[in-house]
Amino acid sequence: MTPINYYLGLGALLFAIGTVGVLIRRNLIVVFMSIELMLNAVNLTFIALGRAMGSADGQVIVFFVMIVAGVEAAVGLGIILAAFRNRLTVNADEFNLLRW
């Protein structure tokens, strides 16, 4: 049996990788993928913790989080699309009309 802590560690690692992706990628779509990665890492954590306690609540929560992730994906990609229409780019660096 694999100790639960390993799953938690894997979750933390994936979460951190997602964070790095958000930081270093210029392409907004890839940035957004990294955020999905972070959410997925949390999902894994929920499942692992639920399993450890023998509680199924964690799985139900993951079910809801997936819906949230899906909704965010749809809306987020829509917003990226709208931004692209205005600026003809998805490069994060070029969105700096608003500053200071």
Partner: peptide, 12 residues
């Protein structure tokens, strides 16, 4: 943080 707690798995 995570290594400071050892989770034991319950049987289900």
């Amino acid at each position: 943080f995570l290594t400071r707690t050892h989770m034991s798995q319950q049987t289900v």
